[in-house]
Amino acid sequence: MRYAMAIDTKRCVGCSDCVVACQTENKVPIGFCRDWIVETTTGTYPQLQMEIRSERCNHCTDAPCVRACPTKASHYGAGGIVTVDHEECIGCKACIASCPYDARYVHPEGYVDKCTFCIHRVEQGEHPACVAVCPTHAMTFGDMDDPMSDIFKLVSRRKWKTLIPEAGTRPNIYYLI
């Protein structure tokens, strides 16, 4: 089983509902975020292209944060999800330095925190909070190892990219383009 997310950049309007839903669901402290919106504009005026992405931890298959962690606090959980055990985290911040996506932060309580793919909801058969609230249905969550899953079919059918694949992290968030 390999949990992954596909995010459709053609559907995303950058409303930030996913950000708010995540902050509410996971009680993310004010000023911090586990997911965020990035807007990029490329090209030469007037031929400009815009892309909007909802970004978060990529739950990399080859996660540098798991390698950097000296205590096994950052580890692979069920379905390949990268999670942080708060009781094992010493706050050395090596994982923050190791993440090319800057997806982690130091929680005011001292431990390092980040997106969990809302595993507590997934275990109950629900979608992650961000996926559940997305008004344009831009996000699909599921098991990439299951050829019958919606995400597998979507990623097979559409053109996609991952972020900084050259960093060698094998990310599990697919951006449909």
Partner: peptide, 13 residues
Amino acid sequence: EELITSGRLTPEV
């Protein structure tokens, strides 16, 4: 040209 705008402003990051 590339312009990136991010809605993230994590302290220390």
